[in-house]
Design a protein around this nucleic acid. Sequence first.
DNA 1: GCCGTTTTCGGCCCGACTGTTTTCAGTCG
Length: 584
Amino acid sequence: MSTSNDPRRDLIALFDEMGSILELLGANGFKVNANRKVARVLEDLTGDITAYRDDPKGLQAMDGIGKSSAEKICEFLRTGRMEEYEQLVAEVPDGLLDVLEIPGLGPKTVRAIWEHAGVESIPDLERAIAEGGLDDVPRMGKKTIQNIADSIEFMKKSTDRTPLGTAMPLAEGLVDQLGAHSGVSRIAWAGSLRRGRDTIGDLDILACCEDAASLIELFQSIDGVEKVLLAGDTKCSIRLDRGIQIDLRVVPEAAFGAALMYFTGSKEHNVVLRERAIKAGMRLNEYGLFPDDGDDEPPQARGIAPVASETEESIYAALELPCIPPELREERNTLETVPELITVEDIKAELHAHTTASDGHLSIEELVAVAKARGFHTIAVTDHSRSSVQANGLDEDRLRAHIDAVREVNEHTKGITVLAGSEVDILSDGRLDYDDDLLAALDIVVASPHVALSQDPKKATARLLAAIAHPLVHIIGHPTGRIINRRPGLSPDMDALIAAAVEHDTALEINANPQRLDLRDVHVRAAVEAGCRIAIDTDAHAESHFDFLRYGVITARRGRCTPADCVNSLSAKALHAWLKSKRS
DNA sequence: GCCGTTTTCGGCCCGACTGTTTTCAGTCG
């Protein structure tokens, strides 16, 4: 394990790795899961992990972290090392964990090829396949070996998880295409896409069709299919040449709700629901919620009528729960209360957009026309500041002329307010890119980090705190600067930023560009809980970018954001009053 | 390893599919 300047990310990697090693060593599966769960809990942590250095009790207060893990975390925070991890790592070859990542290879198989064929890495495995070294491994036939070889090839060229902004249009196209097939009565996407995660592992499509076989046949023949991974009577998995796996399940119409629920997940949410069903004397599976008669054979196979199955709503109701929106079906959420989440229709203002003055493709007039057509009451023109040279950022003189041009357009425009603003760089030390007198001349200031995006968490926190506390700043744009699958961005103490944002009445942005989605879901949730204002902006550089709004909104929903939490859903009057409150 | 309104021990979700097997183990979601 290599250590970074971010102990939280180190610990996530460490617990994940310990889970995998334990799995390979044949440890109790629940222990394996417990380690992985600690990693997930740390993934969702928004505060400063180093504050827990001498506070194992504080860690134990988090659901999923017990005494043992808390002590290990503290040990690592104090010493930079973890004895148990080091012992575990010594027990398996380094490269074996890579072998475990190969699709289709689980812990039992990896262990078998390690013990029987001496495979300790992916290159070892390739050599063993080529030389027939796997032939003596138990349960290892020709087909299995060929599948492993294919999986290795796939892994070599496979990319990262698919960004939401790629997966959503792909799913829409597929649902349209398959939905047009005769006999298809219902079709929907499920999985992490439906939950709105920022990246998607694979795509899950669910359908009802009179003739399942014909739909599965059609599915295997769609454009771009590289390999059919499996094809049964009701289930089929394909892989596209773009490296995305798509699973299709065909289910009876009467069970559509149960199946949709099941395949939407999350896995952890399903487990919670099933446990709840058991406590209520029932059992839940993808065919429905059934009375539990103690028989081991699945109830649907015995003709038992479900308590609920046709709709998700009916199943949640039978479990005495509110209908949980897909975006909230994650482990971190409690189930009893569901807020009225924000929708795309609630958004009435775009507060972060660019024109040809910097690196946008629209003129001021064109930008305003697009915003007006979307039904917005306000559009802010926020071109880049002088330090963003790569984005043709405006120096003081150009900005002053630009402000005049925006005001001019505003005077001649009916039905929408056009604000003169700027997306001002937050320099690496927290200073802003323009002097205060110029900032004060702007209607709206979005302050964003663009450079020095790998500085350590302490510096990043101080930098962003300075911008949040600046009396002329309204919104912090893409606060961490991450780009999905490309750079992790800053890792500030987000709880501290949120507290300061509440104190100074500064909004934190969810940048809706699907490459960013920054703030991310867990940050939004912490902000909303603290009563912080949230902005949802598309950062539009072109007309089509206004369509990014749905990705920002879905991220907001994952953070339990309601219309009342979001500055873009305020009335024009309320929004303008807030903006002016920083110009007194 | 974690957890608790039948608690500090004894549980911890459930089914489809494949490939190897003659009844099931392993993987996946």
